[in-house]
């Protein structure tokens, strides 16, 4: 089985699916650990949205590359370098501020991405993007409202929220750096060039940070590599857990 997709459209959709798969995994790690019962339910909703998006992106990618693989092959039967998610989403949950800061950055990126992708020349992809944009718009609201409360809450919460932003900001530039694949799918009218999304991201995030009394970190040189298959140490552990049953019992049907 060849793991990289030769169809650029499929390869690009897999990136989106890898991103929501990994972040969705992180959200499920919160289960029964949230600060309130209400928030446990809210975080599960975020996770369910991300798992749902993953299935749709993977399924469409598999159709576009000819149907030899399915969502389970993509989610469960590849190795670390085959996953092309940005490094941001594999960063550990940390404390609640770390998770909300990560989610604010993700949703601030994914929402304009999906909104533009809703105009894809591929009707299926456009439909998935429309639905997903509605979901991440709510994610942006939820993470944003929490960041405002943490930033403008107590001294302790402010410090934690600022530290979370400072720690995660090095993973922001990668989100918006276009590579050849991004440019190719954008040129064909199928996908979106992420470098065109930065203004929307800044507008959404700046508004939250101002209301949260949090300082926007200076633009770092940044950590990158996930989109090219070079990951942080964390992804291997995520996959070891995620893939455990499929790897241990390859003959099983679940």
């Amino acid at each position: 089985m060849s793991f990289a997709s030769c169809d650029p459209r499929a390869a690009w959709l897999m990136r989106l699916g890898d991103t929501t798969l990994v972040l969705g995994h992180r959200m499920t790690e919160w289960l029964s650990r949230a600060p309130t019962l209400e928030e446990d339910i809210a975080l599960a909703n975020l996770g369910l949205d991300l798992i749902g998006q993953t299935r749709l992106f993977y399924t469409r990618a598999c159709e576009l590359e000819g149907g030899a693989r399915d969502e389970t092959d993509l989610a469960y039967r590849r190795a670390e370098p085959d996953y092309r998610n940005p490094l941001l989403v594999e960063q550990p949950n940390g404390n609640f501020a770390d998770t909300m800061a990560r989610h604010l950055i993700f949703a601030g990126f994914a929402t304009p991405l999906y909104q533009r992708l809703a105009a894809s020349c591929d009707a299926e992809t456009a439909g998935i993007a429309t639905r997903s944009a509605r979901e991440t718009t709510y994610h942006l609201r939820h993470a944003g409202e929490w960041m405002i409360r943490l930033g403008d809450g107590t001294d302790e919460s402010h410090e934690r929220a600022q530290a979370a932003l400072d720690d995660l900001w090095p993973y922001v530039p990668e989100l918006f750096e276009a590579d050849d694949l991004d440019r190719a799918v954008a040129a064909s009218g199928f996908g979106v060039d992420p470098s065109t999304l930065r203004d929307d991201f800044d507008a959404a995030v700046d508004d939250v940070l101002a209301r949260a009394r949090l300082a926007k970190p200076a633009e770092p040189r940044g950590q990158r590599g996930g989109k090219a298959g070079r990951h942080s140490e964390h992804l291997g552990h995520i996959l070891a857990e995620l893939q455990y049953l499929q790897r241990a019992y390859p003959d099983a049907r679940w």
């Binding site: 029964s32 599960a44 299935r55």
Partner: peptide, 29 residues
């Protein structure tokens, strides 16, 4: 939520994962 939460990150397919997560979420509800 805990005994079932023990398997949600290891659920064997994405469909089973979503079902399990939704069920555990219901328990919180």
């Amino acid at each position: 939520m805990q005994p079932e939460g023990n398997w949600v990150t290891r659920a064997p397919t994405l469909a089973r994962k979503a079902q399990l997560l939704a069920k555990i979420q219901d328990e919180a509800g």
